[in-house]
């Protein structure tokens, strides 16, 4: 059965999208979830738009680059396959370290908390998990985009 391959983002676009995502996603979370100050309805709409734009950029990077998405057999040549495997391997290690840090923090902060760590309230835990989820979806593509030299024909 013939499959339709989603067109790939160029390395340049993947880089720009990943930078924009890294800036916009935290801003949206501050406005919509953390809410350090009362927001006007207009500001809420603005933060919601920022959040949607960040989500769209994230999805574009995730779907438009090799990394997390499944590639059809033979879609990547040997160089691309090696680069993708390296990016996935590095992402796996980074996510492993982050999960280790998260577990360590949670364990220490809920058992005496002699180190004065931030209390793991539900909001903070959910926020961190949401960010880790997004990070693991985007990280392979972002690493790939930043590790691949931008070719003059790209």
């Amino acid at each position: 059965m013939a499959t339709t391959q989603v067109p790939r983002l160029s390395t340049r676009k993947a880089r720009w999208f990943s930078i924009a995502l890294a800036l916009l996603f935290p801003v949206a979370q501050i406005g919509l979830i953390i809410r350090p100050w009362p927001l006007s309805p207009m500001a809420e709409v603005a933060f919601a738009v920022i959040f949607l734009v960040a989500m769209a950029l994230g999805l574009a990077v995730m779907i438009g680059t090799p990394g997390w998405r499944r590639e059809a057999k033979g879609a990547l040549d040997e160089r691309e396959a090696i680069e993708t495997a390296r990016a996935l391997s590095l992402s796996y290690r980074i996510m492993g370290l982050l999960l280790m840090a998260f577990t360590l923090w949670y364990g220490l902060a809920t058992r005496g908390n002699s180190l004065g760590l931030p209390e793991p309230g539900t909001m903070l835990v959910v926020l961190l998990l949401i960010n880790m989820l997004w990070l693991q979806l985007i990280l392979p593509s972002a690493i790939l985009a930043w590790n691949t030299p931008v070719d003059e024909e790209d």
Binding site: D77, E78, R79, E80, P149, D151, E152, E153
Partner: peptide, 10 residues
């Protein structure tokens, strides 16, 4: 040779 043109550049 069955590769991406970028690979030739690299």
């Amino acid at each position: 040779v069955g590769v991406n043109p970028q690979t030739i550049g690299f």
